[in-house]
Structures are given as structure tokens and as C-alpha cells.
Design a protein around this nucleic acid. Structure first.
Lengths: 222, 222
DNA sequence: GATAAATAACTGACTGGTCAGTTATCAAAT
DNA sequence: ATTTGATAACTGACCAGTCAGTTATTTATC
């Protein structure tokens, strides 16, 4: 984003070789612009400007707009998914706890970074770029669904949750997160007042706990 | 969309004056194309073609693309909201029943018509068209939130629901509906298999019933 | 009730501007 | 001296919006 602050004496060179650093910088700039403007309305020239390079240089690192976009999605989302998958395998405690950590982790990321803008982007562009949608469906959505689904199945198997329709419940778990991401991307800037993300997620988890609670004939709670 | 099949003898006229009918036809065609392609990617020529007119004729009825878009949103959404508000005032039964009818009504509409594509559109374009976003926020979102909020408050007041954070709960009630609309607009065509809207809504309502149920101190269920 | 003049709906070729992607050229690094 | 990173000018396609001209319909006239 910013120029390197080398206080070099003499003539500042017009540019500098940064072969290693460029891709990340470009992807970071691209995430910014894509989430602000949407895919179609984003001009590669603006991405280049924010990355401190020229448009032609973009094409040294990415073959076209679509591949750049894919790189953005990969770098923004995939690591998160990997973390979620690890959490699922390594965490020994109650399943509800995994769900809570997952959702709170995502909530934190949505508030702290710009990844929350990606869903908006995909929603908007899926129709016009089917192979992009396919990519997102395979690499992000279905993988995310699988993780949540596994947690729910784990909970049911361990008797922590009542038996539910897993496929549907997965979507019900995710829906509020999606709403948060979408709201922050699209309407919060217009409305002005910030969404209470933490509070909303806490309420969601509270509702989920009650909705998933096994129906005890007598007393519940171990 | 189709020409009127007057089997008139002689020469079929190249076109026909339809001053009264045109606006609706254009808006209907525009809804189709906008929801399929998004705002930016929609070509006015395609809307014109689907409405059975030429591009120039569009500009006799709407000053520009954005105003046409606003007209589409108004005509697709506002009537539905009015129906919801009437239901709230007229229905005497349990609050959960109102919620169920509301959600099922919306679900039915999403499946039967193309209005489900509007949220996608607004999510996508809110950033680029702030005044459009403002309009949608005021006329659609906040009005919708107010209706759901009123139902929940009614339920709490009547002892049908436990006390909850109303603002948050409203969003939790709506989130799955939003997810359904978005899914059908953006990813269902790519994935191929249809989303089980009815089943998902039923599961949502089941979860809601449990999540909102008043907590009995000893035995539950009156 | 036929014909002509006037009007309003409609058309489609055109313009001006934008932007993804290309390439001829240059400067830095080795 | 050669290779590689980077540039900036260029191309070609696309599309919102315009407008001079065409055609259906209505109104006036005989």
C-alpha cells in the first residue's frame, strides 16, 4: 500500500525490483478495491495504483482479472477454512464449544479484516462468472458446510445435540454470519450506526444452544 | 414478451402503440435481466429486446438505467411488505403462527417469482449506488424489520416467547430467508440441485420455536 | 366512409467514453 | 552485455445515452 520509506540520499529510482513482495501487495490491494466496488466495477488500473505499480505489471503476475480475483479469494478465505478444520479435529471439548469458537472466530475476522466483503462479491458475480462461482462453491462454501456439518454430527453422536436435519441446520448456523458479512459490506456504511456483531453472535449462539438441546424427558444438563 | 396473436388479415404491423402497457412490461423485463445479470452487467438493449421494444423506446419511459432500476425495486417489493403489515394487524392467533405464515409467505414468493433476486441486487449495488441503498434501507429493510420486531414483542408480551433481545432476534429470524434468496439467486444455478426451501424453512421454524420457548422453572410446557 | 394531414410512438445507427488486455520500449540488476 | 521487472501508450470491444428519421394511430376534411 505505502511506499517503502527508504530515506535514500540522491535520486530516488523510478521503481525497484520487488519480485517476491509484489504478488501479496497486489492481492491485498485487489481485496480492497474488489470489496469496495464489486468485480465488474473494479478497474485494474486502480488496483495497480494502490499497489504502487502500473497496470501492465499486474499482468506479469496474474494472467487476467478473473485469476487475480481467484487469488484474492484463496488468500483471504482458504487459510481460515484450514484453521476451522484443524479446530474440528483437535478440540476435545463439547461440540457447542467448537461451534461457538468457529462463529466467534469468523465474527472477529469479519470485523477486523476485509474478508467479510468476499461473500458480497460472490453473491453479486456468481451469475456472470459461473466458473468463479463453481470455484467458490467447491473451495469455500462446500468446504465450510462440511466442517460445520461435521461438528453437528459429532454433537448428535455424543448426545450433546438432539437429532436434527444436518444439512438444514448447517445453513441455519451459517445464515446469521452471512447476514453480518453482507450487512457490514452493503448497508452499514449507508445507515451509519455500526452493527453489534458480538451481541448478535452471542444471541445466535444462545438460540442455537436451546434449539439443539436434547429434549430431556426428566432433568437435563449432565 | 410475446406479440399479441391477432390473426388479422393483411399485413402484420411492425409494431403497435402500447403507451399504457409499456411501463409494466419494461419493468417486468428489467426485473428478469437485472436479477440474472446484476446492475452493471445488464445491457439496456437486452431489457428492450425482452420487452419487445427497441432501446430508444426505453428512454421514452425512464430517464436512465438507475431510475429504471428503482422502479423495478419498488414494484417488486413494496406490495409484499404491505401484505405483511396487514397480516400483523389482523391475525388474532399465537405469535409463532404469524411468524410461520410470514416466513412461509416469503418462501413461497421466493420460489414462485423473481423477487428473490432483489436482495442479491441490492447487496451487490449498495456500495456503488448509495442513494439506492438508502431507499432500500428505508422502504424495505427497516420496514420489514419493524414488522418482525412487532411480532416478537407481541409474543413476549403475551408470554408466548421468553424475553429476548428483539433487535438481534429479528435479524436471526430473517437471516435464513436472506440466505435462501441469495442461494437461489447465486449458487443454485451453478450447483444444479435445487435447495429444499420448504424443508429449510420448516427446520428454521422448529429451531425458532425451541429457541423462543419460555423457560419453565420445573416442568416445562403448560 | 374515404382520404389526407397531424401527431405521437417507436426505431436503430451513431457517438463518446470506458476499460481489459497487449506490446514496444526502457531501466535496473547481475 | 544480457536478462528481467516495469512502464505507458495503444488497441479493440463494449455499452449508455442520443437523435434524425420511420411508422402506427388519430383527427380533420371532403
Amino acid at each position: 500500500m505505502a511506499d517503502d520509506p527508504l530515506p535514500e540520499s540522491g535520486t530516488p529510482p523510478r521503481w525497484r525490483r520487488r519480485k517476491e513482495a509484489r504478488p501479496q501487495e497486489i492481492v491485498a490491494a485487489a481485496l480492497d478495491v474488489f470489496t469496495e466496488r464489486g468485480f465488474a466495477a473494479t478497474r485494474l488500473e486502480e488496483i495497480a495504483a494502490r499497489a504502487g505499480i502500473s497496470k501492465g505489471t499486474l499482468y506479469l503476475y496474474f494472467p487476467n482479472k478473473e485469476e487475480l480475483f481467484k487469488a484474492v479469494v484463496r488468500s483471504a478465505i482458504v487459510p481460515n477454512l484450514e484453521m476451522a478444520e484443524h479446530l474440528l479435529h483437535d478440540f476435545p471439548g463439547p461440540s457447542m464449544e467448537i461451534l461457538a469458537q468457529l462463529l466467534e472466530g469468523i465474527g472477529g475476522r469479519i470485523m477486523a479484516t476485509k474478508v467479510g466483503g468476499i461473500p458480497k462479491l460472490m453473491i453479486a458475480e456468481a451469475g456472470n462468472f459461473p466458473d468463479l462461482a463453481r470455484f467458490y462453491l467447491d473451495e469455500v462454501i462446500n468446504r465450510g458446510f462440511r466442517v460445520i456439518g461435521a461438528v453437528i454430527e459429532r454433537g448428535v453422536a455424543r448426545g450433546e445435540f438432539r437429532p436434527v436435519n444436518v444439512a438444514h441446520t448447517v445453513r441455519l448456523v451459517i445464515a446469521p454470519v452471512l447476514m453480518i458479512a453482507v450487512w457490514r459490506s452493503s448497508f452499514e456504511p449507508v445507515e451509519g450506526k455500526p452493527l453489534d456483531v458480538r451481541g448478535l453472535l452471542a444471541e445466535h449462539l444462545d438460540h442455537l444452544r436451546r434449539a439443539l438441546q436434547p429434549e430431556g424427558p426428566g432433568g437435563d444438563e449432565a
